[in-house]
């Protein structure tokens, strides 16, 4: 097989599914059962009736594996649409994180200053802690967490990525 055939790439895949019992288990079971990677996975209903949910999966693999993942997702009975946002043109990816930093004195001041620079909002504060809320691409959140580590990073909760194509183009 050629070099290109073995190259790995990341893929952000959006999946519209019928919002029925077990549908998430089907998607997750597909990934674990067939040995595909899940870097992150998010899900929530997205239409006004609550019948359709949107799953965003971030995965990686060779081109052939990613094509397989899409085909395997598409053949699940409750799946309406599968879209490889990474391949289908420019798109936005965002993730929400809640980040708890515990400390006092200089490090506390430094944490607040960096949070400001990263546009992280303070959503909870005590005399010895902050909870920052931050939205952005995953690498921005990674970078912020790395900076907080020596300053008393205590806990992180992240949603995983959600994504959408730029411009008027829609999924359905």
């Amino acid at each position: 097989m050629s070099e290109a055939g073995n190259a790995q790439r990341a893929a952000t895949i959006a999946v519209l599914v019928e919002n029925e019992a077990g549908v998430l288990a089907r998607v997750i079971g597909l990934f674990s059962g067939r040995g595909y990677n899940i870097d992150s996975l998010t899900v929530a209903p997205v239409d006004d009736t609550g019948r359709i949910s949107r799953i965003t999966v971030v995965t990686s693999g060779t081109e052939m594996v990613i094509e397989q993942i899409k085909a395997q997702l598409d053949r699940l009975v409750p799946v309406h649409k599968v879209s490889d946002l990474t391949m289908e043109g420019p798109h936005l990816t965002r993730e929400l994180a809640l980040i708890k930093v515990v400390g006092a004195g200089d490090s506390r001041v430094e944490a607040l200053r960096l949070a400001d620079a990263f546009r992280a909002r303070v959503v909870d504060a005590t005399t010895e802690s902050f909870v920052f809320e931050m939205t952005g691409a995953a690498d921005k959140i990674d970078a912020f967490c790395a900076l907080m580590r020596p300053l008393g990073l205590a806990e992180v909760s992240r949603t995983g990525a959600v994504a959408i194509a730029r411009g008027p183009r829609g999924l359905n």
Partner: peptide, 8 residues
Amino acid sequence: IDPSSINK
């Protein structure tokens, strides 16, 4: 008939 059989 099953696209997942192709290029698997």
